[in-house]
Amino acid sequence: MIAEETLVQELKDKNSQAKAFEVLVNTYKERLYWHIRRIVLDHDDADDVLQNTFIKVYKNIDGFKGDSKLYSWLYRIATNESLTFLKQKSKKMGIGDQELKDRMVKNLEADVYFEGDEIQLKLQKALAELPDKQKLVFTMKYFQEMKYEDISEVLETSVGALKASYHLAVKKIETYLKAD
């Protein structure tokens, strides 16, 4: 696997940019897809947002200073793109954020690319009730198994605050799932 620093250098060099970008896409497409999918829920929406994320990365790679890891920079862009997408969607539909989240979960019942059972659907309903940040922390830790230190770089939040957020999210979800 190519070292991150080398990849960044190659991405900034016009001669090697195309090849390096292909490596970048191949390396991160699946991880970023699942991150985005867990925010926007719908496959087609996730596909759109993922493509926009990579286009944004391609256009802004010169602006990447290397203060954070490339990995967390990509996640940060994907997260922002996903949240902006949802905000624009709710605005277009003329509904509030919470109503959009409720509709998104309702749509899962008829989604051919959602193979979840009753408990997994209930989990999505529980997640829709959480504040955005708590939901992000939970899915990044629980499903994506990211380290707190990495999540901290992506969400620009202290590890302590993330741990508190995660445990609060787990409690809320468990309470929701236990309720009839």
Binding site: V25, N26, I55, Q120, L123, F143
Partner: peptide, 25 residues
């Protein structure tokens, strides 16, 4: 809390993704 969340993708979705993104660049 279930260990997986039940999301799926169309068959070979990830295979066709890279050319799609590269063509957009």
């Amino acid at each position: 809390i279930p260990k997986t969340d039940g999301f799926g993708v169309p068959e070979s979705y990830f295979d066709g993704l890279t050319p799609k993104i590269l063509s957009r660049t």
